[in-house]
Design a protein around this nucleic acid. Structure first.
Lengths: 365, 365
DNA sequence: TTGTAAGCGTTATCAC
DNA sequence: GTGATAACGCTTACAA
């Protein structure tokens, strides 16, 4: 591990003082230096392969050029693209990311934020916020630059990058209505998250706008965005006895669970019930059936969040104005949606005989 | 952002000198301090919520307690669990990870390593190495602690955590042989990676040991671990005209491509051809058919790699002895493998009529 | 056992 | 324009 070259080494090589070198190397102060000397300094630092010492820089400036990224769980496939977006955008600006997983536990989240702050991160990208988030309140109080991505908190003064959930839900319902569905169920996500909430609200308002059957019993709320909840909610829907021909799910994993639950009851997707997801996570096109869903720009969202954050960090605190970005979404039609089959519906399945009526099969498998 | 409390503040509060505080706070030097005073210092630092300044610590000690993690692409589902393992284990030891993606480009890899080193990482976890790796050579020359995970380089002096590929391949082939397969094809991974190489070598040696048909034409080499290559290689296998009833793939993504290619030719898995994957990435159980594969302990591998690395970092350089860890694997039998159907095989498909003989369908769809 | 002081590599505030 | 100098917060000989 060869000794690292410092400002002093460069100064010695050129025959000037370190402070001169420091000024010459910083574009903001270079104009203070005689161009000819500045040039020689630049050349020498190049030749010696000088790299500023990050620790010394941080100690002096109180800035680390490091930002923390807090996600629930990197293992959940919607986060990696976001993280890559964040990292790539940060790298472009000479920043680094430190990643931390909360596993959705608020206590852990607070502890993690503490550690990151102590470590001196300049700001935080939060992919794990709830609509009313204690951690965000605290960070706001301490004036730490933050931006939320994917989800947002219900405050205008916190910067965010999210996707157009209302438009997404509108596209899903329009697609289903186009196919001829009128009795459409909804597995809504947890209402403590902005995504769960907004998709649910959009479902209700769009459903009304399209003149679809507004039966309240066709909505059931999942307590988490996962396959198990998708199964449970679907069972609940089927047991409710209210007929429907399609299920709109608040995310892909709920949809995967829904399809599994239907299959357990001897119901086929999309033959008996159409199912839609949300997020377009990887591998969805390889499932059986391939899932119709809403594609969101995860990478782009991460990248923009990082840009927003760096902007805030480099802005003087008093000029910081939290920006909000809403990214467009896209409908991806695949095999899990089809026109409702006239002779069938979920509550009164008929057909190939291998199917059982819901009433004969009250409990989930 | 309230002012941070420093050693000086604690010293002032207790009425001693900073150096005394520093010593009292470090378990290694605490014995030098009068217990009673040490106690008061500990209490005060607790009360004031003292946090050591990471930059100052690094500047002084040249250690950052940060390690770099280089992966090809975090978006590839086998990496997130590894990364979580690394991060969790590091967190336990008071270290942090900075993540970087190379996208498999050697040039980018070198640049990234440079940046990380300049940033002062204490060591590196490499999940992206080739069997003969230039970057590793360079890091070795500079005496940077490194450990490779998942893959390894062909040098005994580089610490590594890998999985037992020979045993995995043995289990796969034994399973297939048990089912009655004798003509088994292999889509081998890139031979520049230890995984691709070792799985291929194990395939050959186990195939011989089990007395299976050793036809060389039943092996084809993928140039990447992805679905497209799986499709291409399967087409090549089918076009080769040598009959087989099963395809062993070097990873899951190749297997997914293989199944797609079979379907394009009107061949069903596992009815006509059994297919196996390797890695057990997420969602495999939701595919159609669910994929039989080898499960590897990704999280555990990441965690052990991190522990190994920290151990090396904290060891005096002259005592560093690279350790090699090989983790056990497990066979997961799902729906993509079945006994060979006597009337059928890939080269002479018969059956439901919707199938076409290979010779009628020479090119991939 | 504790205090003193130097120094890690930078940037910022002075003088000159 | 450039150089000297202090300071960021910490660790660590060395002195007391």
């Amino acid at each position: 591990m060869r000794k690292r070259v410092t400002l002093k080494d460069v100064a010695q090589a050129v025959g000037v003082h370190v402070s001169t070198v420091s000024r010459a190397l910083d574009p903001k102060t270079r104009h203070l230096i005689t161009p000819e000397i500045a040039d020689r300094i630049l050349k020498a630092s190049e030749r010696l392969d000088y790299r500023p010492n990050a620790a010394a820089y941080s100690l002096k400036t109180k800035r680390t050029r490091t930002i923390g990224v807090i996600v629930p769980d990197i293992t959940n496939p919607i986060f990696p693209p976001i993280i890559r977006g964040v990292e790539d955008a940060l790298a472009d600006q000479g920043y680094f990311a430190i990643l931390a997983n909360t596993d959705g536990k608020a206590g852990r989240e607070a502890a993690i934020a503490d550690t990151l702050l102590w470590r001196g991160v300049d700001g935080l990208v939060l992919a794990s916020v709830e609509r009313h988030d204690r951690l965000v309140e605290r960070l706001l109080a301490e004036a730490i630059p933050i931006v939320t991505v994917n989800r947002r908190v219900e405050r205008e003064d916190i910067a965010s990058v999210v996707h157009d959930d209302r438009d997404g839900m509108r596209r899903v319902l329009a697609h289903l209505a186009d196919l001829g569905h009128t009795r459409i169920a909804n597995i809504a996500g947890p209402q403590s998250f902005s995504t769960g909430r907004e998709r649910y609200e959009a479902f209700e308002s769009v459903r009304a706008a399209l003149g679809l059957d507004p039966d309240r019993r066709l909505v059931v709320f999942a307590s988490g965005f996962n396959e198990d909840e998708g199964e449970r909610c679907t069972a609940e829907l089927l047991d409710g006895g209210v007929p429907f021909t399609a299920i709109v799910c608040s995310n892909d994993r709920l949809a995967i669970g829904a399809i599994a639950a239907l299959r357990q009851r001897g119901l086929a997707c999309p033959d008996d019930v159409s199912v839609t997801g949300y997020n377009d996570m990887p591998m969805l096109d390889r499932l059986f059936p391939p899932l119709t869903t809403i594609r969101i720009e995860q990478y782009q969202a991460g990248a923009m969040a990082a840009e927003l954050l760096v902007e805030m960090i480099e802005e003087a605190p008093e000029h910081r104005k939290p920006r909000h970005i809403v990214l467009p979404v896209e409908l991806v039609v695949r095999g899990s949606t089809a026109p409702p089959s006239p002779a069938r519906n979920a509550a009164r399945p008929k057909g190939r005989g291998r199917k059982a009526a819901v009433s004969e099969n009250p409990a989930a498998g």
